[in-house]
Computed example of a mutant assay.
Amino acid sequence: MTSTITRSYDSYETAAIVVGNLEGAGIARDDISVIGRDERAKTSNSAEGAGIGAGVGGAAGLLAGIGMLAIPGIGPVVAAGWLAATAAGAVAGAAAGGLVGSFISAGVSEDDAHYYAETVRRGGSVVSVKAPDEHRATVEAIMDGAAPINRDARIAEYRGEGWTRFDEKAAPNSRVADDLARPKLPVD
């Protein structure tokens, strides 16, 4: 059986390290996805996307094929893997759900999908892996070893600000720099 394991990180750089470590552990590139905000994406074009990936942790592998997307409610992101392809298809086809729908179709609960999309909107990054049961422990150890965002604490923080769910019709978050500077929350 295969499970989708997803974690969010405060920075694209951390997510890139996680992707590199997953590939180094033998996790198939086709089973890994990353999507996130990187300040360089605001001034880069699609051709430069691979340079961002290579410059932040992967001269080869998944990150070498990274591309750019403009996602409603989020703005420009860097993305690679199956989740990026699904999100790009949703954006290009104006499909309902956009990034949230992409997470849900990958097997993520609706509540978690809204959280992950909001995390990207606020400047974070998400790594998602389709892992067979025999690789699950390895994938979780790598992902959890990189200090992912404490989901419950972050959701409480978002809700304290009045957030209830991701709104793809909202303007992209202009406070990305402030969110990136926020201290990391402890892992469960």
Rank of each mutant, 00 (worst) to 15 (best):
A41G: 08
A85G: 15
E140A: 12
G162R: 00
V78I: 06
A137V: 04
E168R: 02
H135Y: 14
R159F: 03
G49V: 03
L62N: 01
A156S: 10
A153Q: 11
S128I: 07
A85R: 13
A95V: 15
A146L: 06
V129Y: 15
E157K: 00
V139L: 15
I142Y: 08
A113Y: 01
V127Y: 14
D167K: 04
F103A: 10
A47I: 10
A95L: 12
P76E: 05
A153E: 09
G51P: 13
R122S: 09
E168D: 12
E39R: 06
S125Q: 09
R154H: 04
G89S: 15
A80K: 10
A137D: 14
S102F: 09
S46D: 13
P148C: 00
G53R: 03
F103L: 06
D152G: 01
F103Y: 11
E134K: 09
K42E: 03
G65V: 13
V56E: 11
A106T: 07
A90M: 07
A131N: 06
A146P: 14
I142A: 13
A156K: 05
I155R: 00
E168P: 05
T86K: 12
Y116F: 08
A170Y: 01
V108M: 08
I142F: 09
K169N: 13
L99C: 00
D152E: 09
G93H: 15
V78T: 02
R122I: 07
G107I: 13
